[in-house]
Computed example of a mutant assay.
Amino acid sequence: MSIINSEIKPFTAQAFRDGKFVTVTDADTRGKWSVFFFYPADFTFVCPTELEDLADNHATFEQLGVEIYSVSTDTHFSHKAWHDSSPAIGKIKFTMIGDPNGTVTNNFGVMREGQGLADRGTFVVDPDGIIQLVEITSEGVGRNAEELIRKIKAAQYVRAHPGEVCPAKWEEGETTLAPSLDLVGKI
């Protein structure tokens, strides 16, 4: 069963954000766009490069009205220790959710069975709590924040313009399509 167009499930989790421990719930995501960015573990190899990439592009996400929630099955204490010890992770201003019991990771279906670790999963959630985009990659394949931004812009455009869709490689400001009988077989 596809998770696309499904509502996120309820959760409550502890997180590290802006030098503080905070509680985050599914209700915190309502009314704004959110990215849930799952990764296997703190203090690893590909993960800090991905999170640093998100941190380097954080201002753009904020301009788009998008909240970022990075999630691993580490604790919020581990996130703080990593933030304090790594120059790459020290750049992070977004929320780092600790999910040691796996509730959030299981809710999004990215828990590695028998390992207690999350797959590399990215989920874009609209202001109504509906999942609009899913990307899951294998262990060794890092993700790209700029491509994620492009996809978020497309999702936001489609939401704001019912009846229009964004073709492959669409960039903000480019022509969209209005699906109709007249387009069948002409693209």
Score class of each variant (00 low, 15 high):
A155S: 12
S70P: 07
I4G: 00
G173Y: 06
A55F: 02
P48H: 08
I152H: 06
I97F: 09
E52G: 14
F36L: 13
R120N: 07
Y39N: 05
A15H: 06
G102H: 14
K151D: 11
T29M: 14
F43M: 12
L148K: 01
S180D: 13
D128L: 02
T23N: 09
D53T: 01
A41K: 14
V71M: 06
H58K: 06
T137R: 14
T44W: 09
F108V: 10
A15V: 08
G129R: 01
A168M: 12
L148E: 07
F123Y: 15
D42A: 15
A154T: 03
M1W: 02
G19M: 04
L148R: 02
R159N: 08
I92N: 12
T137D: 09
I152G: 05
H58V: 06
F37S: 09
T176K: 06
K20G: 07
V104W: 05
P100N: 07
F36R: 03
L181R: 15
K9C: 01
Y157E: 11
Q132A: 02
I8L: 14
H161Q: 11
I187Q: 13
M1Q: 08
V66D: 03
R150S: 05
I97Q: 03
S180Q: 11
K91Q: 11
D74G: 10
V104T: 11
R30P: 00
I152W: 07
I89S: 09
P162L: 07
G19K: 05
E139H: 08
D56L: 14
R17W: 00
D56Q: 14
R120Y: 09
I89R: 07
P127L: 01
T25Q: 07
I92F: 05
E171K: 15
T95I: 13
L148T: 07
L177Q: 12
P167Q: 04
G102A: 11
T105K: 11
G109F: 13
V184E: 13
G173D: 12
A178S: 15
F123Q: 08
D126E: 06
D99H: 12
A155T: 08
A59E: 15
V24A: 07
D53L: 03
L64F: 05
K153A: 02
A145C: 04
G129P: 05
F11K: 05
T49F: 05
V124G: 01
T23C: 00
P10R: 10
D42K: 02
K91S: 08
E171I: 01
T137F: 07
D119L: 15
A41V: 00
A81F: 03
P162N: 06
A15T: 09
G121Y: 11
R150I: 00
I149S: 02
L117V: 08
I8G: 04
D53G: 05
P40V: 09
I136D: 06
R112M: 15
M111G: 00
F43K: 11
F94C: 01
R150C: 01
Q115W: 01
T105E: 02
L64H: 03
V141Y: 02
F38A: 06
V125T: 02
D182I: 05
G185T: 10
N57W: 02
V104P: 03
Y39R: 04
G65S: 09
D18K: 15
E67H: 11
K169Y: 12
P100I: 10
A15C: 09
D26L: 03
T176R: 08
A27W: 00
T23P: 04
N107V: 03
I187F: 15
T60V: 13
S138K: 14
L64P: 02
R30E: 10
E174D: 14
E50W: 02
F43H: 09
